[in-house]
Amino acid sequence: MTTRAPAPPPAEVAFPALGTTAVLLVTDPQALPAAEAVLRAELSAVDLTCSRFRPDSELTRVNRNAGDTMTVSAPFAEALQAALRAARLTDGAVDPTVGRAMTALGYDRTFASLHPEDARPLPPAQPAPGWRRIVFDPRSRRLRLPPHTHLDLGATAKACTADRAARRAAAATGCGVLVSLGGDLTVAGQAPDGGWRIGLADDHAQPATDHTPAIAVTSGALATSGIRVRTWQRAGRILHHIVDPATGESVGPVWRTATVAAATCVDANTASTAAIVLGHRAVDWLRGTALPARLVDLDGNVMHLSGWPPDSATTPGPTPGDPR
């Protein structure tokens, strides 16, 4: 009788990207360089296309020309369509036209560059112009934003990048791949025995412990949205990066974190962000989607929806959290 040698543990690399941390794991350690090259290429492309903070990005050019009709690139069109789909599926709870509101709140540069305490007064909050006012033809890629409208494609573009990079890396290497961008993650290829062990926490950058709840993922994606990590002070108020399009202000605190599982990272991210924006209404809305979800309120009470398994503490791997 012969016995199969145990598979080597997944190989991992992590590095700063898109204002957060990119983490890549592969089941075949020899495939790590090739998979990393794929991921870095995807990250470079989306940063040049969709960054709010680069003066040379396509998004900056589009926002600068709001009110005019222009032709956008195919990558930008793909990112915009994902953002518009998210807005449609959430009835505007996740809306790409919150760019000016983000800037008004003080999130006008990379998070690492923000002043943690800013004494400048806050300008009066204004609702986002609304995604329905965007005129876009996917076939010609002709786009017209309403005047004075700025897009923010960060969350959905990041999630799309995770999905695309995982698929491409798995196809290039033939092994199992996990890509996590700021804790929003997607997997592709054959998962390791027992699945990818994923820790659940407010902040993906914090080291996991034996008491960290964890879940096994064999396919699809997870995304976590929360209000505790990307925070700053402005005029004496504590603000965070998730904006309610209806008010133009940081969402009022109801859920500390919302984690959602879906077939793709972009769908998981859309649902987790919508849950934070919807507040108490998120429970019924998430049940309507039938997506497994885990909500944590401000006191740390946990609610599981649509078949999310009970929390179990075990030594986990990458930790979702810190959504962009």
Results as ranks from 00 to 15, higher is better:
Y107I: 01
P207Y: 08
P116C: 10
E117M: 01
G189L: 11
C160N: 06
G195I: 13
P147S: 03
T110Q: 13
S219L: 03
H115Y: 05
V177S: 09
Y107W: 09
G220C: 11
I134G: 06
P147M: 07
L151M: 02
P146K: 05
A162M: 01
R168M: 09
R109K: 01
G106R: 02
S180K: 08
H204C: 14
W196R: 04
T161W: 01
A214Y: 03
G176P: 12
P138L: 03
R109I: 00
D202L: 08
F111C: 02
A119P: 10
L185I: 12
L181P: 03
A191C: 06
R109V: 04
P213L: 08
H211G: 11
L200I: 15
G174M: 01
R132E: 10
V187H: 00
A128E: 02
T156K: 04
P192E: 11
R141H: 03
R132K: 02
L114M: 13
S140Q: 14
P116N: 07
T186Y: 03
A155P: 03
R141M: 01
T218W: 02
R168K: 14
S180P: 14
R144H: 09
V179W: 07
P123E: 02
L114D: 00
F111R: 09
A170M: 09
A169L: 07
S180V: 14
D163P: 12
L151T: 10
D203Q: 05
T161A: 14
D210L: 15
F136N: 02
H150E: 14
Q190P: 09
C160P: 00
L200M: 10
H115C: 02
L145P: 12
L151W: 08
P124D: 12
A172I: 14
P138S: 13
F136Q: 03
T212C: 04
G176Q: 04
A170F: 10
D193N: 06
T161R: 01
I198K: 13
R109F: 04
A162D: 05
R164N: 04
S180Y: 12
H150Y: 03
P192R: 15
C160R: 14
A205D: 03
